[in-house]
Amino acid sequence: MNHPLLSVKNLTIDYIGDRKDFRAVDDVSFDIAPGEVFGLAGESGCGKSTIAFAISRLHKPPALIRRQSKILLNGRDVLDLTPQALAAFRWREVAMVFQSAMNSLNPVSRIGDQFHDVLMSHTTMTKAQARERAAEMLRLVDISPDRLRDYPHQFSGGMRQRIVIAICMALDPKLVIMDEPTTALDVVVQREILQRINDLRRTFGFSVLFITHDLGLMVQFCDRIGIMLAGRLVEENAAEAIFQTPGHDYTKKLWSSFPSLHGGALL
């Protein structure tokens, strides 16, 4: 990989405690190439979301990203960005789908406004252009644009998640982080959404950092996979290889806990 889009180096993150600290991410390094889907798997609490948050620089105390850590996006260290540069960088370069589908849209504002605020603060679009763009994005995820005036509670969980994905596409980002984007959804909707993400990815060419518990899903969807255990990245390889010839004992154990994979190629 000559020019990775994202290059995480020695990422180490502590949660500062009253007496001692908890190391949630321990010296993790990995690269994501342009257009690639990189999967991060591991049991609950192993630090996946903590990594995702660090890449968009969303952490708040007590989290602390240790000195040696580097997060390079197109060669530029995200951790060095000034507040203005950071505001411009967020969503424009890295957009994010959060863990809970139900809860990541602001319940008291209209869907249209949640497109508008992001478009208006990152571009010089007029109101009308922003509306047009929002409608276009909604169509991409099969939601009728006349629902822009609706509130989040008027949509089903799957629709809300598709709306979030549409908002992610609004600025044409280079990297989309998906933190268990489908956990709260049933299997059919889950497949539908992944299908949609994959289509969009082909169209727009962004990279994906895909986080999930579901190894079966991961193998079908990702190009390469990293396996995490208690804050460390214990194995990293092409999806096929991780599946056929797991190297680490922990990976083998993970596989054995998923006896039956969803058969057939999803994509």
């Binding site: 505001a87 967020r90 969503w91 990541s104």
Partner: peptide
């Protein structure tokens, strides 16, 4: 800590 607040920050809004 709600997701929509974090998403608001992630969107790069002021």
């Amino acid at each position: 800590g709600e997701d929509y607040v974090v998403m608001g920050r992630a969107k790069g809004l002021s």
